[in-house]
Amino acid sequence: MVRTLLRVPATARSGEVIEIRTLIAHPMETGFRPGADGTVQPRDIIRRFTCRFNNREVFAAELHPAVAANPYLTFTLRVEESGILAFTWEGDNGFSQTETRPIAVA
């Protein structure tokens, strides 16, 4: 498990468009960079990020080596009901991590 930072409002009004901000600790090794010994470091990146709201995919992104280390991503969502947001990052070397946040919609 690596560190993630998430900013999701705890509450929202029905129909409100919220902004979701995510940050995850990951080197995003490009696969183009020589290491200290001169050989090229193998690629190790997060390839896919998804956000599900009550098990329905509401945002997804394919990431390439041009995304900076410790990927930062913000996006929006219109919320109509209370529920659970689940964030999943998947990548090279079997990397997979999911974090969840509840949101109460009045």
Binding site: L5, I24, A25
Partner: peptide, 13 residues
């Protein structure tokens, strides 16, 4: 902004 500052990942750790 703490949520955009990657140094805060280390602070949390």
């Amino acid at each position: 902004d703490d949520l955009s500052n990657p140094g805060m990942l280390a602070v949390a750790e």
